[in-house]
């Protein structure tokens, strides 16, 4: 198999400034990964096109890191096929066009930030200028500091710099903002958004819906090794349910659950908690019926609660 036959030779004509081919950036077909008796991924199908910012969202242990490890060729799938830029993931040509920030990775602690960026840049046939990478990652002034003496947040920024230095077409980030404070996290989001604005495809894993919502154009929710939702942030949030209604009323919860727009009903004594995508319609029925209702409150659901519900819902 030659590189040309794997990559496809037809140029992609949307953004002539960037060297993209007709092949999807990432392509998983029936990707399955078993570790002994544990099935970490159970047949994932995922196609990512150039220019997308995709979040893989899921709770800890959902299979996010396993999925990224397969895409990066760090592990081989038990079944299914993986293509990275149309190539097998471990192909040097694919590696030259991808930058990655992993969850558990290290560098020799005795080397400095500047030395490491320079060293990693030399691995790539074409790379960004060291000073540019250092500035973009927010490491200006820390060039001479040894990696072993960086704070947790600075370390994350160094790994981000090492992911960027090869001027990659695709950047893969596994839980990139773990250990960052709120301010650094927002700065990080800004830089990723800029990267994407300049044509870099971004794929990142996170367990924070807020992060996926802030950055991504597409959210793929994974739970128990399966894709359970795939869509725009608005779609995923809508599917997760929009509002919570608390009410004291003598109503059968199973009846309420059958109303359109209701996601879930829970009863505690005479109080009902109703999760609804269309709160207004549900309120209309509550007040329009013969039953006496009182103590009604309606609240916008926190994104995290909505996400946890989505995960819980897909467990059953």
């Amino acid at each position: 198999m030659t590189i040309a036959s794997l990559a496809g030779s037809a140029p992609f004509d949307a953004t002539p400034a960037f060297n993209v081919t007709s092949a999807p950036v990432v392509e998983l077909r029936g990707a399955t990964k078993r570790y002994g008796a544990v099935e970490a991924l159970r047949g994932i199908d995922l196609v990512i096109q150039p220019g997308e910012i995709t979040a893989i969202l899921g709770p800890n242990g959902a299979g996010k890191t396993t999925a990224l490890s397969l895409i990066l060729g760090l592990r081989s799938p038990t079944a299914g096929t993986i293509r990275l830029l149309g190539l097998p993931p471990e192909h040097p040509e694919a590696r030259a066009r991808v930058g990655a920030m992993l969850q558990e990775s290290g560098v020799p602690p005795m080397l400095t930030v500047g030395e490491l960026v320079e060293l990693f840049s030399s691995y790539y046939p074409h790379s960004r200028r060291t000073a540019d990478v250092i500035a973009a990652a927010g490491l200006t002034g820390l060039e001479g500091r040894r990696a072993g003496r960086l704070s947790g947040g600075q370390r994350q920024r160094l790994f981000f710099a090492l992911a960027l230095c090869g001027d990659p077409e695709l950047v893969i980030l596994d839980e990139p903002t773990t250990g960052l404070d709120v301010e650094s996290r927002r700065h990080f989001w800004d830089v990723v958004t800029e990267l994407a604005a300049h044509g870099t495809t971004v794929l990142f894993a996170t367990h924070l819906l807020e992060e996926a919502d802030a950055l991504a154009t597409r959210i793929v929710v994974i739970n128990h090794g399966r894709i359970v939702r795939d869509g725009t942030p608005a779609q995923v949030k809508a599917q997760a349910g929009g509002k919570t209604i608390h009410v004291r009323a003598d109503l059968d919860p199973t009846l309420v659950a059958s109303w359109p727009g209701v996601v879930r009903v829970e009863r505690t004594g005479s109080r009902l908690e109703i999760v609804a995508t269309d709160a207004e319609a549900v309120l209309g029925r509550l007040f329009g019926g013969a039953t006496h209702v009182e103590e009604v409150t309606v609240e916008e659901r926190a994104l995290e609660t909505a996400f946890l519900d989505l995960v819980k819902e897909t467990e059953s």
């Binding site: 760090l74 991808v98 992993l102 558990e104 046939p125």
Partner: peptide, 12 residues
Amino acid sequence: RGDLRLVRVTPL
């Protein structure tokens, strides 16, 4: 430490 993992995702 994970140095090798990081180097493996580069073209070196």
